[in-house]
Amino acid sequence: MMDAMGIFDMVLALALPWLGWRLLASPDLFRAMVLFISLGLLMALTWVRLQAPDVALAEAAIGAGLTGALFLSALRRLERLSEAERRLAFAGKREEEDEIPPERHRRAKPVAYGLALLLLAVFVLLLAWSLAQTPAGGGLGPAVGEQLGQSGVRSEVTAVLLNFRGYDTLLEVMVLFLAALGVWSLTRVRLPLQDEEPGPVLATLVRLLAPLMIMVAGYLVWIGGSRAGGAFQGGAVLAAAGVLLLLANVTVVRQIPAALLRWGLALGPLLFLLTAVVCVAAGGNLLEYPPQRAGAWILLIESASAVSIGVTLAALYAGGRPPEPPAQDRGGEQGPGRDADADAGGRQ
């Protein structure tokens, strides 16, 4: 047992921190981000080794793919900005001395370093303490296994996510929604995200892949009931389709009405919340489904959340609220604020 797979485990476990170190130490930010994406893929491999296929799927799609895309687009945006700034400086404007002086920087270093070490030591102690506190042979695995029959699904992780600890997932969907609200209230997206023409290959690729991605997202949501998969993975695939459409500079994307986007964003959280309230009203606890219908409820919530997660993640990638429609006048501008307020009010 300890032969081939053990060596593989060891190499993998060593590669992760090494890659993390290289990533933070590399002077070039672009290289750091590429290393970050490869670290995410190695993490996905690690999840498979640790028998967590659900997490592996989510990590590969969200942790490596989508986060990497977010970082790369942010870097691109910053570089474009600083490029403009540099041109401005060369045009004759004297640049101000607003850099932190190196002395102060250096003086701050030992303090920061000491603080980091202290925090780390505290954390290690806490971790060791909590590991020692864990009861032997414990864990919630047997308990979940016992109750799995009445959860309505056959996959343990989905049962925990949407039935036993459904309120966690409810809150988490809300966090995602809040993040989208935050980004939307901060800036307005500037399309196109790419400067240059996408070219025929990318256009055809998008045309081919976008419907297939919708199919795969549906499949992931369906298979989540019995095996690895679920709303997050399906939503991530939908978001990837959205990112592809944004990158390919498809005109249709710009013509999607903002109201539709807003409803897509709110669909999952609203339905989830509604279910929770209905469950309470029917005399149960929060998100305590009727046992016979649990499977149907979970499937409904999962599909709605998958759509919402997809729209939300794609909106986060776009990095702002939808651009103003060119033809209409200011009537559309009033809309987003009012709708967002209504949603926020509905949540409380």
Binding site: G63, L70, G139, T312
Partner: peptide, 20 residues
């Protein structure tokens, strides 16, 4: 134990939203 798996799944999504 599937509970930490579910929590990590949740955590991945939360971390991507905070990053964004």
């Amino acid at each position: 134990d599937p509970v930490p798996h579910a929590m990590v799944l949740t955590g991945i999504v939360v971390s991507v939203s905070t990053t964004a």
